[in-house]
């Protein structure tokens, strides 16, 4: 187990955060925070409510500047490089927001086509073909393309948002509570879908979730955010042994143990 950035060469890292200090309204939320996500893994970030997971995600996607420290995403320093480099890096990552964040004025087709059109250099026929390919990948039918976000179910919103996040074939996918608000069936099929797409497209994933089933099914490594920094980062069986109150409460429950041991949960 390690609390410092992972040892592999920096080029293998899609996210590399060192010595991050983050303040919200004058009070320190993170200090000396290090986190490294490799190109070939699914990293899950867990932490109690109010520990600053969302704030950390906002820093990683460049919506907030840290008070101090280095934040590098896909080899581009968000704290040092210019706006154009940062924008170019953002186009190489996709994000699935908790509530989808679909553009309510656009239908499903235009939502998925939006990043493709913004990227430029693609004719409308190609865009149409890519959108329909993405719809198929997320197991939606062509006739869904004409629907407006307001007419979609929660599960469909997540799928469309996933298709939009994957439209530009990103190298890094960020998932914010991907299964929140879905029933267990839909949640399971959504996790299966992400696994399948990952097997095909080999993107790295950084995920924030409170759902243990999703966490067990998808994660390669777990980073635990507590006491203002990453207190542990490693494979699940290492992290859950950590004698920390949050870790023990989060993973130590009866339900979690049974799940980890492989016995079925009904």
């Amino acid at each position: 187990m390690t609390t410092s950035p992972a040892s592999p060469a920096t080029t293998d890292l899609v996210i590399d955060i060192r010595g991050l200090r983050n303040e919200v309204a004058g009070s320190v939320l993170h200090r000396d925070l290090d986190l490294a996500v490799r190109r070939d893994e699914v990293m899950t970030l867990v932490g109690g409510s109010g520990s600053g997971k969302t704030q950390l995600l906002r820093i990683i996607i460049g919506l907030k500047a840290p008070a101090a420290g280095l934040v590098s995403v896909l080899g581009v320093s968000l704290t040092g490089d210019g706006l154009m480099e940062v924008r170019a890096a953002r186009r190489r990552m996709g994000m699935l927001f908790q509530n989808g964040a679909l553009y309510s004025a656009f239908n499903v087709f235009d939502n998925i086509a939006f990043p493709l059109r913004e990227r430029g250099g693609l004719d409308e026929d190609t865009i149409r073909a890519v959108v329909h390919a993405k719809l198929e990948q997320v197991e939606l039918e062509p006739q869904h393309a004409r629907l407006l976000p307001a007419n979609l179910s929660g599960g469909m919103v997540k799928r469309v948002a996933l298709a939009r996040a994957l439209a530009l074939s990103p190298e890094l996918l960020i998932l914010d509570e991907p299964t929140a608000g879905l029933d267990p069936d839909r949640s399971e099929s959504f996790v299966r879908l992400i696994k399948m797409l990952r097997a095909q497209q080999r993107f790295a994933v950084l995920m924030v979730t409170h759902d243990l089933d999703t966490l067990y099914d998808l994660s390669d490594r777990i980073a635990v955010l507590a006491d203002q920094h990453i207190i542990a980062c490693g494979p699940l069986d290492e992290v859950r042994r950590l004698p920390h109150r949050f870790v023990q409460n989060f993973f130590g429950g009866d339900r979690a143990l049974r799940c980890f041991d492989g016995s079925a949960i009904v």
């Binding site: 996607i61 460049g62 924008r87 890096a89 953002r90 186009r91 927001f97 679909l102 309510s104 990043p115």
Partner: peptide
Amino acid sequence: GVMRVTEEIEALQVMGISVTGR
């Protein structure tokens, strides 16, 4: 304002699109 509430503005920013430009 509604785009802020529904995180549509954040989604634009994450895609590397200028909010003022768009």
